[in-house]
Design a protein around this nucleic acid. Structure first.
Lengths: 196, 196
DNA sequence: AATCGGATCGGACGGACGTCCGAATTATAA
DNA sequence: TTATAATTCGGACGTCCGTCCGATCCGATT
């Protein structure tokens, strides 16, 4: 059941195991013992590296956030036109949902956790802000830097999150595709007519 | 700490206490003992009325779902034009967020719970389907009954959920208002140009 | 008044939880 | 090599959890 010994530092193994377990069972059902076992490490080591349960999951959140930002920026690298941007980000969520639904559920679980535990809120808030900014800054190249573009990006992200939630709840591939398909056109239309 | 004795059946008091506690601390942090204390009832009575923890929270989900459907239908009663519908539903979420954020967090928490526990999924799936249907059926009165209207309603709901999530995470009133404000126009624009 | 079934209670059970600590091991420096 | 610090380990502690059980209370039916 335990993982084979790795060369990288033990703290990384613990972090990865925490991500894996969290993506598999969710915060409410996971225990530090399971994570320690998955990492092939003594239970007490989790507290040695991350102080306590909260510290460990804060590290998980930081890791997830960093990864999402990196992946989204790579996805949008060099793109300028609004249409491609909306399409790419939408496709990114759709692909995540299709290939690694666990990671998407992990993200949603961390977001939910942030609703109840204030310690997680700044980090999760920053993640949403960074994602929105990444989308936004590539949107306003062709038009005046309008504040409404930032809000448009947030509504766009919100829609993708809300759709992902519904898609996981009702995993029929056909419906998923139809839902995601209409998102880029929807926001492209709004973006072209600028403010309200 | 315990509530005063009520006239209504004990099972209702337990259910209400469960909703209240769940809206206050979230599923991951709540215990049956707290709920029993809040309801002014012996711990064992929770199992007498609802079998087990899962049964109790399933009842909570049913209650929340029924309430949401009722409130949304009341909000949209008699309305026909798309603009009013989008505006009303958006205002409904915005009002919920402003006046009873606990209930909105309860809804999000139950949705998240449904991601991990399959027992909750059908009920939560039905809630989204019903909400979408309620919006959809008032949309297609003026045009041909198109499948895309159902999907539009789901994307609309998804956006509202995603925006609510971000709004709770970052409770600055100004930003909230700006976000919600642009939603109706966005979807009205898409609805008027029908399918993709 | 006697009976009976549902309702309610308090308390207990075993187990799992997060946390902590002393000892053993390994790495680093002198 | 020896001394010192950083890691790693196994095990324990006290607490809280969901569940269950026997006793008591109460209201309705004979």
């Amino acid at each position: 059941m335990t993982e084979r010994a790795e060369k990288r530092p033990q703290s990384d193994a613990i972090l990865e195991a925490a991500c894996h377990c969290l993506a598999q069972k969710g915060y409410a059902e996971i225990s530090l013992r399971e994570i320690a076992q998955k990492a092939g490490v003594a239970l007490s080591q989790l507290h040695y590296h991350y102080d306590n349960k909260q510290g460990l999951f804060l590290a998980v959140l930081r890791s997830v956030a960093e990864r999402y930002i990196t992946e989204i920026e790579a996805e949008l690298e060099g793109l300028k036109d609004s249409q491609s941007i909306f399409q790419r980000v939408t496709a990114f969520f759709q692909r995540k949902l299709d290939r690694e639904p666990g990671r998407l559920r992990l993200f949603l679980d961390l977001a939910n956790l942030s609703l109840w535990d204030e310690s997680f809120r700044p980090q999760m808030r920053a993640l949403f802000a960074d994602l929105a900014a990444t989308v936004e800054e590539r949107l306003l190249s062709e038009e005046d830097p309008d504040r409404s573009h930032h809000n448009l990006a947030r509504v766009f992200l919100g829609a993708l999150v809300g759709i992902s939630l519904q898609a996981i709840l009702d995993p029929q591939r056909v419906h998923q595709a139809e839902l995601f398909q209409m998102v880029p056109n929807l926001f492209l239309l709004a973006g072209s007519t600028s403010g309200s």
